[in-house]
Amino acid sequence: MTDSTSTPSDEASQNAALQKAVIVGMQPDQDRHVIDEAVRFARLLGAPLVVAHVDVTRFVTYEDPDGYVHSAPIDINFVAGVAEFEAVQASAASLLDGTGLTWTARQLVGDPALAIKQLANKLDASLIVVGTRKRGIGESIREFFTGSVAARLTHRQHRSVLVVPLGESVPDSQKEIWPETV
């Protein structure tokens, strides 16, 4: 089951049904291992799963007293964020349909750590699951300026955060953890 929250009353009723959910942060083309771990913990906890994608090309303009978030694009070309969410929804559907889990996809906006934290508060989430970042100099530079989403989540709220490693681990003999890959 997927949804794209459109009205404040819809969101409030959906949030009530998703209390104690496991939230998994997801990006297009993300390693399947992250969502597999989220599914495993949702089953263990008997909780619904919320697949959260954060559109960093939009920012929160204001929030209604009932929690409905209004946003605006940073750039006039906001089609990229819509396309990313559609890709995340399609990927989640292919991975989750047939699992028997109750799940939904949510599009969040702004800073990923703060947006996921706010959603976790609304749902009184049981667990937040995120993946580590991809290796490479570009990702290292991005993390230098924005910080690690996983680290910021663990320091800014009280819920447990499961950080799932992506891809193959770096061997102990390799000195440089994030070499530039071509």
Rank of each mutant, 00 (worst) to 15 (best):
M1V: 15
M1K: 10
T2N: 14
T2K: 11
T2E: 08
S4K: 09
T5C: 09
P8G: 13
P8F: 09
D10H: 11
S13M: 09
Q14H: 13
Q14D: 09
Q14P: 01
N15A: 13
Q19C: 05
K20D: 12
K20R: 15
A21F: 11
M26H: 05
Q27M: 10
Q27R: 15
D29Y: 00
Q30P: 00
Q30L: 03
Q30G: 03
R32G: 14
D36A: 12
A38N: 03
A38Q: 03
V39G: 00
V39T: 05
V39K: 02
R40K: 14
R43Y: 03
R43Q: 14
L44P: 05
L44E: 14
A47V: 01
A47R: 07
V50Y: 04
A52M: 01
H53I: 00
D55Q: 07
R58K: 07
F59D: 04
Y62S: 01
D64I: 00
G67D: 02
Y68R: 02
Y68G: 00
V69S: 02
S71R: 06
P73G: 13
P73E: 00
I74Y: 04
I76H: 07
N77V: 06
E84L: 08
V88Q: 09
S91D: 13
S91I: 12
A92E: 06
A92G: 08
A93H: 11
L95E: 10
L96N: 08
D97Q: 10
D97M: 07
T99H: 07
T99I: 13
G100H: 09
L101S: 14
L101P: 12
T102H: 15
W103T: 05
W103S: 05
L108W: 01
V109R: 01
G110M: 06
G110W: 03
A113T: 06
K117W: 03
A120V: 04
A120L: 06
A120W: 05
N121H: 13
D124F: 07
S126P: 14
V129C: 05
V130W: 02
V130Q: 01
T132K: 01
R135Y: 03
I137R: 15
S140M: 11
R142N: 06
F144D: 08
F144G: 08
G147N: 04
S148G: 05
V149S: 04
R152G: 12
R152I: 07
L153F: 02
T154E: 12
T154D: 05
R159Y: 07
S160D: 14
V161D: 04
V161L: 06
V161W: 04
L162S: 10
V164F: 10
V164Q: 08
P165V: 08
G167K: 05
G167R: 06
E168V: 14
Q174I: 11
K175G: 15
E176I: 10
I177Q: 11
W178V: 09
P179L: 12
E180H: 12
